[in-house]
């Protein structure tokens, strides 16, 4: 995933793209658009994580079925009654509505999966380093300390193990909990004392005396500008088409889904293009790489 074309862009562009994709996905419940969003997200997710990605996508299937099936139990509007559950009608309209919402949920989870792979914590903190210096410093420190503390915690439980008091050897529940929490308590004392040393050292080096400058490893290049402009233009087009009702979909009490043809089709195409941006960039780079390698 580190050689992914979209991930190599400026983090701000990545963030704007994901925000746009997720907000658009949440707001639009039109089945065709939901499918397009799922397809775009799933494709990019698989490009990022390969074989493992397919397994994780299949895990979402039961969630989809569950949310779809559960919705008509609580939404009894609609004319076409399929059958009755506890004397309440189970309608086709509500089932379709449920399927759409389940699709939105799946698409969102997939987009978040891509977000986690692309916008790693270093990018996030570098993005907000100037806007909120204390907060991003805090976040960086926390993210650095977590593996550090886990390692130190393992050392503590290791030394307890050597005297036969390891938490994972505990027979009863209370032994496990108290053993584990004892490690956490010891770790807390150690980490707080260590933290004071760290902060004194920071103070000695002049923390807080002047505005902190931050080192930005990501440069906003010309191609980032082009991509940002494309994203902005597509988003504006999607908003314009949606305002005209191209993606309107009402399920209950009667189905009223905007047909995808004529001008509406243009809106749909714009939406599809937007959702495919990262995948297209990824594939284009892969193709280029293969071409230039075959020329050698």
């Amino acid at each position: 995933m580190h050689s992914d074309a979209f991930s190599k862009c400026h983090p701000a562009v990545n963030l704007v793209f994901f925000l746009g994709a997720i907000v658009a996905t949440v707001l639009i419940v039109h089945p065709a658009y939901v499918l397009a969003s799922i397809a775009g997200a799933a494709l990019y997710y698989m490009l990022l994580s390969g074989q493992k990605g397919l397994k994780r996508i299949l895990v979402l299937l039961p969630i989809f079925v569950f949310v779809t099936a559960v919705n008509p139990l609580f939404n009894t509007y609609g004319d076409r009654v399929l059958f009755k559950v506890f004397g309440r009608p189970y309608t086709l309209e509500a089932l379709l509505y449920g399927a759409s919402l389940a699709g939105v949920l799946v698409a969102m989870l997939l987009w978040f999966g891509c977000y986690n792979a692309v916008l790693t914590e270093d990018k996030f903190t570098s993005l907000f380093g100037n806007l909120a210096p204390a907060l991003s410093l805090l976040l960086v420190m926390v993210l650095r300390m977590i593996p550090n503390l886990i390692k130190k915690g393992r050392q503590i439980s290791g030394s307890r193990m050597s005297v036969g008091k390891d938490a994972s050897n505990g027979r009863t529940l209370t032994e496990k909990i108290s053993g584990g929490m004892l490690v956490v308590g010891t770790l807390m004392s150690w980490a707080l004392e260590g933290g004071v040393v760290t902060s004194d050292s920071m103070q000695a080096r002049g923390y807080g005396t002047a505005k902190r400058t931050s080192f930005m490893i990501y440069r906003f290049t010309g191609s980032d500008g082009v991509l940002a402009a494309v994203i902005a233009a597509l988003l504006a087009a999607i908003i314009a088409f949606c305002a005209k009702g191209a993606a309107s979909a009402v399920f209950t009490p009667t189905l009223d889904i905007a047909p995808v043809r004529g001008t509406n089709l243009a809106g749909f195409i714009v939406f599809v293009i937007y959702m495919l941006i990262p995948s297209v960039m990824h594939i284009r780079e892969a193709v280029q790489w293969n071409i230039s390698r075959s020329r050698i």
């Binding site: 204390a134 410093l137 805090l138 420190m141 926390v142 300390m145 977590i146 550090n148 503390l149 886990i150 915690g153 393992r154 439980s157 938490a167 496990k176 909990i177 584990g180 929490m181 490690v183 956490v184 770790l187 807390m188 980490a191 707080l192 260590g194 933290g195 004071v196 760290t198 902060s199 004194d200 920071m202 103070q203 923390y207 807080g208």
Partner: peptide
């Protein structure tokens, strides 16, 4: 600096504690 570091330690402990028990 002290406040920042102490808050960071407590946050990190919260996350790490899940692994240690």
């Amino acid at each position: 600096a002290r406040e920042l570091v102490i808050i960071a330690v407590l946050c990190a402990l919260g996350v790490a504690s899940r692994v240690l028990v």
